[in-house]
């Protein structure tokens, strides 16, 4: 018999655990945006070495499951004498994986801009830095917004993977809860609701931003 009492009682510890979900995915995307921008620049640079580096970075991170990468980072670092707390390994891996996708999102947005946009700026003698800051980036950012929100939603879900290194986020907390109550169905349904609530909020935020930035 489904116990709505257990279902409702599960929310409190899970929402508490959602802090870690938000921390890992939020910090992950924040750091991922910065690294992603650098990788994107590398992939569009004139230097063959930098382009090659970006290509390897993107294909490795997109080609290997995040769970495997997380385990590699978590078990590899101590072997080479670097001892990091689980949360750092979790956020770091999330950010690095996100950077690969984000760099591709930005590269796509920049390439989607008509060539004439930058040309019009170059033709009046604008310096390259201004062309980027004033003309290319503002448009690329708003073009990439839907894809970035999508990426953030994927990250929130992917953050369930960091439960394997012991981070008490929603998934890990619901496993513990299910174990102690012997009521897995109620607990996991509650966990599903918490994820859904977070992601519906993000999707709404995305629509709001898109609407605001649309010209």
């Amino acid at each position: 018999m489904f116990s709505s009492k257990i279902f409702l009682e599960s929310f409190e510890p899970l929402m508490w655990a959602a802090r870690y979900t938000l921390l890992v995915s939020g910090l992950g995307i924040a750091v991922g945006l910065v690294i992603g921008a650098l990788i994107c620049m590398a992939s569009m640079s004139k230097s063959g070495f930098l382009r090659g580096f970006a290509a390897v970075w993107v294909s490795y991170l997109r080609g290997v499951p995040m769970l495997v990468q997380l385990l590699v980072v978590y078990y590899l670092l101590p072997v080479i004498g670097i001892d990091v707390p689980a949360i750092v390994a979790a956020v770091g891996t999330t950010a690095i994986v996100a950077s690969a996708y984000i760099s591709e999102i930005w590269r796509g947005a920049i390439n989607a801009l008509p060539k004439g946009q930058a040309e019009a700026a170059v033709a009046i003698g604008m310096a390259p830095g201004d062309v980027w800051r004033r003309v290319v980036l503002p448009q690329a950012v708003s073009l990439s917004l839907p894809a970035l929100i999508n990426e953030l939603i994927l990250l929130v879900k992917a953050s369930s993977l960091v439960s394997v290194v012991g981070i008490m986020e929603i998934t890990r907390a619901s496993q513990a809860q299910a174990g102690s109550t012997f009521r897995p169905l109620e607990v996991y349904l509650a966990a599903a609701c918490v994820y859904l609530a977070i992601n519906l909020c993000l999707a709404a935020l995305g629509r709001y931003l898109e609407h605001r930035m649309a010209v």
Binding site: P114, G116, A120, A123, V135, P138, Q139
Partner: peptide
């Protein structure tokens, strides 16, 4: 000065 076929105004 240059004027383009597609205007190339900055839409933002």
């Amino acid at each position: 000065g240059m004027v383009f076929q597609q205007f190339n105004l900055w839409p933002h």
